[in-house]
């Protein structure tokens, strides 16, 4: 008897839940419920910090709580998948790094989504270049000397990355391809391991975040030979850009980025509203300062700019992946 009642009330409860969540949100009074912001990285990581920095002013502007949901795993892919799984409720958005939108379809066989068809870009948030770091004992003093050294002994200079297909790996391969040299890849699990390996002399070089290399440069144990952004980066203004030197083309650029996204099919007015709030938030000097302190430069822009960025990066990294797969 009691078991029956339990089951029936459960049934009633779940229909109620379904009825509520299936209602499409009307753009003019959106949001009508707390907004869930999915992040594919654990608390304390830089995408998480960015999400929390954005979530607070966003909640104020929207008049609804913004709940950061950490769904870490598979290089950020799980966060995107989880956001898409909540599609029906109209209140789930996400913050992600570039990987899940650009290289993931090539690297993860059962991705379960198509970045072009299933994701509605909201806007870029911030970008971060990588620096080419070597141990202080390494002979080359600049990128040109590094490339000259590398072409003199092909395949002998080793570099560390944070895994096959990671940003650090692909950036290094892009660099090597454009400069016409051959480098020796040794994958690690984290930037911490790569840094230790450079300091200990296990590997020669590595592409890493400026903020990761900076303390060791200050301590005199590491050197930064160049940076992958198009213009010098505010955190390390003295490091020369790689573009245009050492045989690299003038438009050489490889950056990591964080962006806000929503599931495809989200009302265009909602996307516009979110992008508008995002622009206001990113214009705040305090936010800019806080982001720069953790190595990220704000990058305002329209949803269409993000769509262009996704398309361009997908093509660029796709070509690099083709090359590395051919090597294997």
């Amino acid at each position: 008897m009691t078991r029956m009642t339990t089951r029936r009330s459960l049934l009633a409860a779940s229909t109620l839940a379904f009825g509520l969540t299936a209602l499409p949100a009307l753009a003019q009074d959106w949001p009508t419920a707390p907004v869930h912001l999915f992040v594919g990285f654990p608390a304390g990581s830089s995408p998480d910090t960015i999400a929390r920095l954005v979530a607070e002013p966003l909640a104020e502007a929207l008049g609804q709580p913004v709940v950061v949901e950490n769904k870490p795993g598979a290089g950020g892919v799980i966060g995107v998948q989880q956001m898409l799984a909540q599609k029906g409720d109209g209140h789930s958005i996400g913050i992600t790094i570039n990987g899940p939108l650009t290289t993931a379809p090539r690297l993860i066989p059962e991705l379960g989504y198509d970045p072009q068809a299933d994701i509605a870009p909201v806007g870029l948030i911030a970008t971060s270049p990588l620096v080419l770091a070597v141990s202080a004992d390494f002979a080359a003093q600049d990128a040109a000397a590094f490339v000259a050294d590398a072409s003199a002994r092909p395949g002998e200079i080793s570099y560390g990355s944070v895994g096959q297909g990671s940003g650090a790996h692909l950036t290094a391969e892009l660099f090597a391809g454009e400069a016409g040299v051959e480098l020796y890849h040794i994958p690690y699990k984290s930037y911490a391991e790569v840094t230790t390996a450079i300091l200990g002399g296990e590997i020669d070089a590595g592409f890493m975040a400026p903020s990761g290399a900076l303390p060791h440069v200050e301590a005199g144990t590491m050197k930064m030979l160049g940076i992958t952004s198009a213009t010098p980066f505010a955190q390390v203004p003295d490091v020369p850009v790689l573009a245009g030197q050492a045989g690299l083309p003038d438009d050489f650029r490889a950056e990591l980025w964080n962006a806000m996204i929503a599931p495809a099919g989200t009302d265009a007015a909602v996307i516009e509203r979110l992008n508008g709030e995002l622009q206001t938030i990113l214009a705040d000097p305090e936010i800019q300062q806080k982001l720069l302190a953790i190595g990220w430069q704000v990058q305002p822009g329209a949803p269409a700019d993000l769509a262009d960025r996704i398309a361009a990066d997908t093509e660029m990294w796709g070509a690099v992946i083709d090359k590395t797969e051919a090597q294997q």
Binding site: G44, S46, A192, E218, T221, A293
Partner: peptide
């Protein structure tokens, strides 16, 4: 890594210095 993250958020970069 989490502890380090907590430091970095407060603008402190742990390291050799």
């Amino acid at each position: 890594a989490l502890m380090l993250g907590a430091l970095v958020i407060h603008g402190i970069q742990p390291g050799p210095m």
